[in-house]
Amino acid sequence: MTSIAPQRFSRLGVFGVALALGGLAIIPFVTSTTGLRQASQIIISVLAVLGVNVATGYGGMISLGHGVFIGVGAFATGYYVDGLGLPWLLAIALGAATAGLSGALVGLPALRIKGIHLALVTLGLAIVFQPLSKRFPKFSGGVSGKGIEAEFVAPSWWPGDTRMATAVYRYLFCIVIVGLALWATWNLVNSRFGRSMRAIRDNDTAAAVYGVDLISARLQTFAVSAGLAGLCGALQVVLVPFVSQEKFTPQQSLVIYATAVIGGLGTIWGSVLGVVARTAVGAAGEAAAGVDGLGPIGEVFDLLDEPAFVFGVGLILLTFLFPRGLAGIKRPKRISN
């Protein structure tokens, strides 16, 4: 009889994970506290992309507004740790849960509308979020934002309490949380619930015929998706004890969506690859900004001084070269039926 073994990591996957962990282990030795914080911020952005991936890649519901859930997670965590004086770990968990709850509310329209219309609703939400959050200074600090008094420091058993030691602790904390989130999400999408989620994405009528409850499945999917983005927001507060609506622009939401697509929707590793590619393209833009002395054609290349230009072109190229996303290269092409 054919063996129906559960999905396993490929050799390439194991190699990739080993390579990534090796790279992550080196970073603390070669950078400053600032560099380490920036690396941590890139690492936690995987969570938001993973969130989009769950909703869009696995659930088939487009979200162009996941920056909102990062914002809710950040504001809520700041409030729990400062306003309510909760311990950090609890505040982070509750912050993510609050974002998840808000995601379920936002998911309500997703029960009735699909595709491009849902995309517009979530984009509208992303646009509304900034002016709206200014009106709630208790959580957001109003227009200018607010500092968080409580500081996320290493426990007493951690060797050293210098700034560098604290930065390393936060860095490792973020890696562990992101690793756990990737593992948990991988298990979720391969569970019975994950299967029903993907079945709805492919053909909701057929899924309903086999007894899948479309309403609760869609709401749960959106809640998990928003919770992951909220976790990203909570960890932002861990790294920088300051919250402000300024960060949660509609453009940020769009970039998160683009990153999920570039990495490959419907694959867990795609979320990681997408962030790697986005970071590389962004860094290329920053590096190109310093290039000078190109002579007569310098006028044209002035554009390279604009990081946004290089970033945008990078997005376009990646989309053309890898239409299924970086992690989707090896997937078989779909033959229409």
């Binding site: 299967r195 993907r198 079945a199 994405r201 492919d202 053909n203 009528t205 057929a206 899924a207 015929v209 419907g266 779909r334 039926n337």
Partner: peptide, 10 residues
């Protein structure tokens, strides 16, 4: 159903 209605990406 007509047209089979399988889940293509499962």
């Amino acid at each position: 159903p007509q047209g089979r209605g399988t889940f293509p990406e499962l």
